[in-house]
Design a protein around this nucleic acid. Sequence first.
DNA 1: GAGAAGTCGTGATTATTTTCACAATTAGTA
DNA 2: TACTAATTGTGAAAATAATCACGACTTCTC
Lengths: 210, 210
Amino acid sequence: MDQNKIPQATAKRLPLYYRFLNNLQHQGKSRVSSKELSDAVKVDSATIRRDFSYFGALGKKGYGYNVEYLLGFFRKTLDQDELTEVALFGVGNLGTAFLHYNFVKNNNTKIMMAFDADPDKVGTEIGGIPIYHIDDLEEKMKDVKVAILTIPASEADSVTERLVEQGIEGILNFTPARITVPDHVRVHHIDLAVELQALVYFLKHYPLDK
Amino acid sequence: MDQNKIPQATAKRLPLYYRFLNNLQHQGKSRVSSKELSDAVKVDSATIRRDFSYFGALGKKGYGYNVEYLLGFFRKTLDQDELTEVALFGVGNLGTAFLHYNFVKNNNTKIMMAFDADPDKVGTEIGGIPIYHIDDLEEKMKDVKVAILTIPASEADSVTERLVEQGIEGILNFTPARITVPDHVRVHHIDLAVELQALVYFLKHYPLDK
DNA sequence: GAGAAGTCGTGATTATTTTCACAATTAGTA
DNA sequence: TACTAATTGTGAAAATAATCACGACTTCTC
């Protein structure tokens, strides 16, 4: 709403910064420079300073950044206070990995429920998160606005359609299928096979030195 | 070696194109336009044409692209013939998801072996892939040049160090830890928590219409 | 308190990526 | 064959992102 001028490339790095600052705080460090951050998160220090500068002057010249202050600032900016509720679809290995991940700790998101078609899974819990039958999607999913898709590709379209019907706002899609949604729904796509393939391609064609 | 001028942004999209072309072929389609491809993979059609053009004139004006020809071309370019061997570290849920994924089908990569510290897992197989003890890394991993890291963050540094020692060339890191490697090792980083958080951030701050 | 060392914030520059827009060419049709 | 509709490939422009480089300010040390 407000900071609409923040470059997308910057926005994508914010959660990364946030996580690392959290680590620093746990380690009891109270001060950090863009150079140190750079070494840790592998982003050029000038880029980090530029990123931060979109939010105003957060550091002090000759000193660096105060970890606590920066963290407090990010918490607000990243809406760490507000909790976003998430539903997960497909309790296979990948889905289970998500359920075991405790997002809430460093995070503003919580998986509230999961869906699957397997009767052996329905009715159980994983990591304290209840698993419902996929048929009950409409009934159980009331206010949840974000979904993670870890279902087989063949199910992607039908589930997506129902989610859109239900008023979903964002989908994190791990399916190889490229799903079609109305313009007002945001989809981020992660394809594990593509990621691996891309790495291999880069290895062969982009001899590094940097 | 040859096509060193291909933009990285393009390179990242190639596996995506490849996968979709494969689907088309299975559907028996012999012809496709950049517009159709665009609808399917959600990339602007001009971008697709530009991407392809880095490899020469692959299409025909007024006609589009011949699926089979394009596919044959990509197969060579993406080294689909050559098989890249991969080792996986950490047979938790995420690691298991990878082992079940049959990469070879549409793919130039194969997970040859997995490593874990859990004695219950060591000695077994998942999806036909043997699981060794992490202590045997040096012994078992001979020619494998690519590793997938799905271990706990706390293990990331020590395993990475051993991999580097062993002559690793590329690492796909799913650990939240940002690992440090020599310049000649390529690391791609995917942090599931960061991805989810980024999606949520975008939802709140980048109202879409596009 | 003065000088040295460190570090930010940012104007300017450069690099990369996307998009526009249209001439050229082809397929399809009558 | 001649006309129409489709679609590429690409020069040029625009948008986005990364990096350089330095003035200004802060802390530290003696």
